[in-house]
Design a protein around this nucleic acid. Sequence first.
DNA 1: GTCTATATAGTGATAGAC
DNA 2: GTCTATCACTATATAGAC
Lengths: 188, 188
Amino acid sequence: MNTTSPVREQILAHAVTLIMLRGYHGFSYRDLSELVGVKTSSIHYYFPSKDDLVLEAVNVYSSAALGAVHSIDSSLSAKEKLAAYTVGFATVLGEGDRICLCGMLAADMGSLPPNIVQAVQAFFRGNESWLAKVLAQGTKDGTLVVNGTSEQVAQTVFAAYQGSVLSSRLFQTKTRLEEVPAAWVVST
Amino acid sequence: MNTTSPVREQILAHAVTLIMLRGYHGFSYRDLSELVGVKTSSIHYYFPSKDDLVLEAVNVYSSAALGAVHSIDSSLSAKEKLAAYTVGFATVLGEGDRICLCGMLAADMGSLPPNIVQAVQAFFRGNESWLAKVLAQGTKDGTLVVNGTSEQVAQTVFAAYQGSVLSSRLFQTKTRLEEVPAAWVVST
DNA sequence: GTCTATATAGTGATAGAC
DNA sequence: GTCTATCACTATATAGAC
């Protein structure tokens, strides 16, 4: 059985949130210590180095987020899928003070070891390949305006989501994120 | 005469670069001290607090970047303006290890005082209002595909640029950034 | 597993001599 | 203006008792 320590899970959950709020350098073992209620040395017991912790946080976040994306009903129209994807992306904003953990770590890339960078890249690619399929579907049935290959445009669309979650937090409004799909959906 | 100290200018120039590389928490007065060749206490003479320094860095960067944008020949077509804008944005990538200073600080927002946040917001708005005019021009002459108001789509386009410069660095390729305008330019 | 205690290094910032 | 010297604090990390 894969019984995981509840303390370890608490540490990870708070680490995920703190990275989304303030990034790699913006939180410390002390912050986690106060949130979880154990000493910093206990956190080192579960995660010997900060990079170990952050890598695990990326894996937890990435599995959950990509899992949610892939659980979007495949029978939906391309337009409906994008709407569902947008709702999912809006969830990461939380109370309006968070951004995507992998977008944040992409910004912190200059301070990260290669294995974490690779995990962040995998998250980007996972989103882009799902979006590419949706764009191809929408191109086929004429409900989306896609200039270029679906793979290329999927990269731009995902970048628009990442940038929009950033500016939604910056301006304290969800509308910027919600307006993203409209840029590719054929007006009715 | 507004004669500025050359040491002060060196500090600022290196601060701008370091923020683009590693963000607000990712550089220190010691880093600047070694780069400029003065002691950290001398840096405090010019910039009493780190926030003073970062605010000035935003102003320097913002003036230069928005100045470059507004110096794009207004007689160009919308498509040509977007191409010139893309070239300008590609410049911030440097050797492929930098992202937009204001995009970086937007990610670091959770650690920044309100006056810096406002300066970053102003940079976003300045870019978006210029893009909105270009999109309106392209809508008028039919060379761009713009679904929605030019102001709304301009926010998505700017977000796509911010996200694409992030992923261009993440994957070490400029193509992601270069593909951004194609998503809105009418294929010929 | 969790703790106390500690090591080692880095941080922004200030006082005061020159 | 630039320096030396130093402060108070925080950071990640480790050793070893319980």
